[in-house]
Design a protein around this nucleic acid. Structure first.
Length: 262
DNA sequence: ATGGTTGTTTTACAA
């Protein structure tokens, strides 16, 4: 079973790349973030024609998450329990969708960016992660044996090795101790980074800013992850970051992250 | 040259 996560940065502008990605890697499931469209705007036909079902949650031009599967798509859940909202008044955003595909419980997650340290969005990010941690722990089941994958754009670089220049990020989001602690708290419940053993650092990234020629200069960040419960960890056969997808005209600023389960 | 790029319901804002 092959599963990928990809922040596509608008599915309407990159539906051809998404379809090619499914075919190129023979994917069974694709978790998408930043689809940037409403449900009625999602380009379903090219994916359905390729034999996939789609569960999408999008409210407007911001955020948007989806699960694309050819191994079943059951018990779809939009958002998680007590997921915080943002703004005044509080609005629930399209940042989480869960479904069961081929016996695995999968979540496509788009963690809030945080914008700037001290910004309300930064506090929102930390609270969002805290609530996710509590729910994710319950998803492991009473004996911790459930097959669960938490995939997506986490907007956190867990260690200094996960950014091209730690000094560049001083005073910026994505690398602060509270953000890293929030990420570590989810790992501590029993989830593990499924990809890192197959894609060691340094210099291994999943995102490169569009500006400043960051990609050709290899100046990126590792912020997209597939985290797996222990029973998923035990099935790991292979993993890689599809850096090729970041190349060429019309690429997303994120690369897909792909795993293979036995 | 105080910028440099993408996307969206665009000429503002989010990333």
């Amino acid at each position: 079973m092959r599963i990928a996560t990809w922040n596509c940065n608008s599915i309407r502008s990159r539906i051809d790349r998404a379809a090619a990605l499914l075919e190129r890697h023979d994917l069974d499931v694709l978790l998408l973030q930043e689809t940037k469209c409403r449900d009625d705007q999602f380009p379903l036909l090219p994916l359905e024609a390729a034999g996939y079902q789609v569960a999408h949650h999008g409210l407007n031009q911001w955020n948007g998450v989806a699960i694309v599967s050819r191994v079943g798509l059951e018990e779809v859940q939009v958002g998680f329990e007590q997921m915080p909202g943002f703004g005044d008044p509080l609005v629930s955003e399209a940042r989480a969708i869960g479904a069961t595909c081929g016996g695995v419980r999968l979540w496509s997650l788009y963690v809030p960016n945080g914008r700037e340290i001290g910004h309300p969005h930064y506090d929102y990010k930390l609270e969002w992660l805290k609530v996710l941690r509590d729910d994710a722990e319950r998803w492991l089941g009473p004996d911790g044996s459930a097959q669960v994958i938490l995939g997506g754009d986490w907007n956190i670089a867990p260690t200094d090795e996960d950014v091209w220049d730690p000094s560049f990020f001083e005073g910026k989001t994505h690398v602060t101790p509270p953000e890293r602690a929030a990420f570590a708290a989810i790992v501590d419940t029993g989830y593990a980074d499924l990809v890192r053993p197959y894609a060691p650092g340094p210099g291994t990234y999943t995102y490169w800013d569009y500006t400043q020629l960051r990609f050709p200069k290899k100046q990126g960040m590792r912020i997209d992850f597939l985290l797996g419960s222990p029973s998923v960890q035990a099935r790991m056969a292979d993993a890689f970051i599809d850096r090729e997808e970041r190349k060429g005209k019309g690429a997303s600023d994120h690369a897909p992250v792909v795993i293979t389960l036995d």
